[in-house]
Each structure stands twice: as C-alpha cells, then as structure tokens.
Design a protein around this nucleic acid. Structure first.
Lengths: 216, 216, 216, 216
DNA sequence: CATGAATGAGGTTTCATTCAT
DNA sequence: GATGAATGAAACCTCATTCAT
C-alpha cells in the first residue's frame, strides 16, 4: 500500500519514480512553506510538480504524510549543511562565530525552513512526533556544539556551565525571529528591516550578543 | 455602511452590540491562534461566541478584516501591558531585567500572541499593512526603551550605541522562539523544554545574554 | 398591517412618509432595473434611498410587492407621457410618426422600462397579474390608437383592417428590441449600434417600416 | 489546467466526459433560461444533469463561464438552423418570407433563446464580449441576407439601400418582442396573445410589414 | 507508472426577512 | 416613523480524496 521507500534502500527502482517523488517533495515544500499546512492545496502541489494529483496519494498517502516527508527532508538538509562546517576542526571562538553566521545565512537562503517549522509548531509537532528518524538526525549537532564549548572552556576562553542546547536555541532564536517576523516588525516599527545595512547590523549585533555571553 | 465603530467614538450604542463584537473578537482570537488563518473556521468562531455567523459579517465584513481586527487588539493588549510596567521610573539595569521577564511571561500567558503573529508573517503582513493604527500603537515602546538605554549610558552602566529596536527584537527573539518552537525543539532534541526547571533556566539564560551584551 | 396608501387617497398623511416611500420606489426602480429581480438586493435599495431596510418592509411588505409597486409606477409614467402627446388632435399620418418617435425616445430615456419589463416577463408576469390597476391604466392607449387609425382609414390614407394592438406591438417591438438587445447585437455583429448615426438611421428605418405598412 | 476542450479537437477522450459536459450544458441552458443568471442555482443545474455539482466547476470554472458556454451554444444552434434554410438557393421575396417565418417559429420553439439573451443584455453583454468565437459565428448570416437583398435589388423587386443588419434586427424585433413580452402584453391589454388565431395573425402582420418595406 | 473523471463534505459569504426598541 | 441588531436558509465555490482505467 505504501510505495514510498527511503533513500537508504538499495533495491532497484525506476528512475521515473525517483524523479516524480523528488518533484512532488520539492513542490510540496514550496507550497507548504508559502501557504501553510491548511492553506496548501494538493492541486497546486500537483500542478507545480507537473504531475497528476493521484500520484501524490500513490507515493505519499495523504496530505499529512506528505507534510511529514517534507519536514524530514528539511531537517536533513540543514543538519547536513551544518556537518559540512566541520566545526570540530576550528578554534572554539571562531567556531561559535561561524555557527552564528551559518545559521543566519541558512535561514536567509531557506525561508521555507522557517515557515515549515512555524506550521509544524502551530500543530504542536504532531507530525514530527510520528517520525522515527528525527531525533537521530538532530543529536549530532548538540554533541558537536558540546565539544566546541568544552574545548573553549578548557582553553579558558569560555565561561563555565553553558548548556549547548540553550545556546543553540539562543543562536537560532536571534536569527530565526528576525527573519520569521520581519514583515510584522517592519510594519509596526515603520522601518524596513530588510535593507542590506539593517541585515549587516543584525548579524553583527547577534554575534556580539552570543560572544558577550559565552566569553569568560 | 459598516456598523463597526472604534472604541474612541462616544455616540450612544446598544450594549448588546458592544458585547457581541467583543464576543466575536475573543472567539476569533482563539480560533485564529489555534488553527491559523486558513485553518480557522467562521462557523467555529460564531459557535464559540454563541452568535449567528451572519453577525460576524455584519460587524467585520470578511474573514480577513476580522483577522486584522484581532491583530490590532492583540498588539493593543501587549503594548498596554508594557505601559503598566512604568519602566521610565525604574533604574536602567532593573528596567531591562523587568522587560525581559515581562516579555517572557507575557508570551507564556498569551500563546495566541505568538501564533497570530506567525500567521500574519506567513501572509507577509498584508493585513497589518492595511491598518492605520498599528504604527502609532507601537512607537511608544521604542521611545521608552530608548529612554532606558539613554539613562543607562549616561550613568555609565550601559555601553554606547545600542539600537533600541535591535535590542527589543533580540529580547523578543529569545523569549518568542523558545516558546513558539518549543514543540519541535523538544521533539528533535528528545528533551522536554517545558518543565519548570527548563523554563527557569531559560529565563536566567536570556537575562544573562541580554545584560552580558548591554552592560559596559 | 399594510401602511402603504395609493396617491388617490386624501386622508392626511405625513410629509416624511410620502418622501420616504417615493425615495424607496425610486431607488428600487434603479436597483431592479440594473440587476433584475433576483439580482436586486434589498440592502442596496435601502442604501440608495438613504433609509433603513426595515422601512421597506414596513411600507411595501416584501421584495415582490415592492417590485409590483415599481412596475405599476413604470406603466403609469409611460401612459401619462403618451397622453401628453394629444394624438387625438393630430392628423393621422403625423400621429403615427409622432408615436413612433415618442416610443423610441421614451425607451431611450427610460432604460429601466425595458429591463423591468424583461424581468417581469421572465417571471411570466406573476406580479402584474396580481395588480388591480394595470388594465385600466393601459386601455386608453389602444382606444386612442384605434381612433387615429379610424380617422386615417376614413380619410383614405390608411389601409383597412389594421389591428391597433398589433400595430402598437410592432412599433414597440422595433424600438424596444433594438435598445434592449443593443449590447448583444453590437457584440455579435461587431458593429457599434449606439453611435448617433446608427441611432438616427434606426429611427428613420422604423418609421419607413411602419408607414410603409399602414399607408394604403 | 482547464479540462474543457472545444469540439474541434480530435484527441481521444472519454465518452463520459463528453456526455457529462453536454448534460451540464443542457441543464444549465434550461435553468438559466427559466430563472435568469442571478436566479439560476448551481445546485439545480447539477441536479437536472444528474451529476455532482463539483463537476460543473471542474469543467466550466464558474457560473459566469458556464453562462458564456451556454450562450455560445445558443448562438451556434440558431445560426446552424439558419444555414439549413439554404436561402441562397431561393428566390429573394420567398427568401425573406421564409426568414421571417423561420425566425418566428425558431423563437417559438426555443423560448430559452429569448430569455438567455435578455439576461445577457441585462449584464451589458459582459460574457459575450469575452468570447472569441461569437463574431465569426454570426457574420455568415449577414452576408447571406446581404446576398438575398442584392439579388432582389438587381431583379428589380426590392428597393435600394436596405441595410441587412437593420432589416435583420427588424425581423428579429417583431418576432422576439411579441414572444418575449407576451405575458405582460396579454396582461396589460387584457387579451390573450397566445391563442392560435392571435399567433397566425401576428405572423401574417409581420410578413406584411417587412415586405411592405422591402418591396419597391 | 500514470491519469482524467468524479464526489461528499464543508468552506466563506449572501440573502430576505424579523426582532426589539 | 424609524432603526440597529440579529438570524436561518441557502448561495457559490473549494477541498482532500477516490474511482476506473
């Protein structure tokens, strides 16, 4: 009944089938991120993918299952990108600096990350909670950050007792909220927060904040 | 043509009309915040309010107009609550501490604030941009914070050149994101971020971060 | 229950009441003629009249009753205008000429006449059939035309056996259809039938047709 | 995106799709003609067609688009029937006689033609103006009539300078108005204009009128 | 692997009308 | 005489989903 298979599997499979599934996932990601879960239309997703609507059900079962598939892909992407930073090979202060900068630019270049997570949180993470892969995908990040903090503490540059989860959340907070709420903030304060200058100021401000806290 | 009137007007009006409009606004706020704009149902709003669905259109015109009315009410509430802090009468460092604490607790007690703003941002603030009252409602906050920073700088406790908008956004970021994304964060990190202990740690962490940055 | 009174009655009555009823009739005539019976909105009628919607029901009872009142007024107007032609004092050929010209210009200046009658015919004249005044309003016209034809026949200019009803219907046909169907005709033939030249040609053509038939 | 296709296309298509579209068009024609555009109900159309309401939107997009499709079909039908008269092979006077008679009987047997056009004119032909096929469907008729008038003029039976469009409109006027306004006319004149005798008189009267004008 | 046809339930909005003063 | 508040029914249209091939 469920024709969808994870990439890990190695059994032979049609090229077309692969291409169709990826096309659906890509267009679903765009549609969900632009209109939210309730606002997304299965018709639009099919049209964006250039495929028949029935095929979505064939591969993904339902709108909610498709949404979960999109979420998993989204988390996989950012965690893979973080791995590519190789923070374990970088001096601690520089590692933090890079993590802030990376997070900022990743959110900037992947606005769908923000809106998809907002949608999932509106639904109290019901989809993610059904996922079997999600925790194992995210734990390496915290281990990595813990290692950075540990190295910094031992070399005397970082203060004691920094919780890597709290710190990661704070870094994410500062980047995420500025971008996710940019439209309302710009409107209520009557000030365009998307100008190149404002954006540069923001990155500098965030780095100051985080390092001002971490450094002993 | 439009029966709805702002509260500023003083002409006599039926008490029932007032009560009906307030009941609609309250139930709309709940419905929109729990299901998002697209997911909200006009039927549910009417039912929650114990009023005829037609009356919503009589008073508010359309779903989008109603959503804007809810948003305006939401901003009015938080800004009024902030005014009641009287930060202008408090010593600068304590003022910042109170603002962080207030923001944290306000978001905690008003989860609708977060989800409503997320919905509006998903729609690129199209509703708020049509509002004529929204800027004037929010500018006093920045003026107030600017005054606090100024006093702190002159008394030598705060560093120079802190942008009140950036600082306010950072404070909001740290509180907002932790709560708005709590469900996904708890899920991906496999750690309950809603326990009393986690919550207390968070407030302390945020205060450290903000003061670590602001203090000279 | 029915506060509405015909103009024939002489009992004292409020000036405001009169004015309100006339305002409602005028705006109802406009609304019905522009949108048809089903398309007309009681709200729009009230708004056009600058009066409360409830008042329409107070004076006219229902949408259908209001529509009948509009129809009666419409017929009364054209028949009164026809009376003012005093065709009985005019030489027969000239009388026909004047009747054609009058009919043409009356329809032209009263487009609501056409659309209201179309609406009533779509409904198989159910409203008019309930009217008690409609026949007596229209019989004088036929008597008048019969007199004209009789005079013409006796003076030798008109042929024998012309039925005044048939002739009146034909005159009306030629004027009415050209104007009532002007938009579709102009569109399907790709030719603007509303230009001054086209209109003048039409009047001339119609007069030729009618006199070509009536003259012996 | 739009599943509807014109009949000209030859690609294989499900027979059911054709049958469904035709069933919808037929029931829409009936509903629109009996109740007008505003008065017609999409539910009734679906029910009359024995099909799901959603399918109407699938094939035709909206009520207005469906109305245009009905209008186009209506014009196609009458123009095709006119072609079948083969007036080009008939002697001019007889051709006019036949055209009058045909028009009269066509309107008589297709009352929907009249009410549909009335509806479209109430809406200032907004639908037809969007049609790309409507002019080319109607131009052959005028060319044909022009040919008949030309032959008659050259053989000396018809007068000079008759505009085929004016003449066609007059023929249509005489037939159309008598039938379209039959109910109100019968009511205001207190005389049943639908009796067989009245109908026969009318046809005779109209033929006299038209030939009385056209013959030199 | 892929698709056009079809649907039941439910969405926002509109409507003529009545209530209560 | 006049009106703002309120409503039940029903309008057009949309949606995720399934059927049949």
């Amino acid at each position: 009944m469920k024709p969808r298979r994870t990439q890990a599997q190695t059994e032979p499979r049609s090229r077309d089938a692969d291409r169709s599934q990826l096309a659906i996932l890509a267009s679903a990601r765009d549609e969900f991120s632009q209109r939210g879960l309730a606002g997304a239309r299965m018709d639009s997703i099919a049209e964006r993918a250039g495929l028949n609507k029935r095929l979505i059900y064939y591969y993904f079962g339902s709108k909610d299952d498709l949404f979960l598939a999109v979420l998993e892909g989204t988390y996989a992407s950012i965690r893979q990108a973080e791995q590519r930073l190789h923070l374990e090979d970088v001096e601690p202060v520089e590692a933090i600096r890079r993590l802030v900068s990376f997070t900022w630019h990743y959110y900037l270049e992947h606005p769908e990350f923000i809106t998809l997570l907002n949608s999932e949180n509106l639904h109290r993470a019901v989809h993610l909670k059904r996922s079997e892969r999600i925790q194992e995908m995210n734990s390496p990040l915290i281990e990595l950050l813990d290692d950075v903090l540990d190295r910094g503490r031992r070399s005397g540059v970082f203060r004691d007792g920094i919780d890597p989860v709290q710190l990661y959340i704070s870094i994410a907070s500062l980047c995420y909220f500025y971008l996710s709420n940019n439209d309302t903030l710009s409107t209520i304060f009557g000030r365009d927060l998307r100008t190149p200058k404002a954006m540069a100021q923001r990155l500098s401000h965030m780095t100051d904040l985080v390092l001002g806290y971490a450094l002993r």
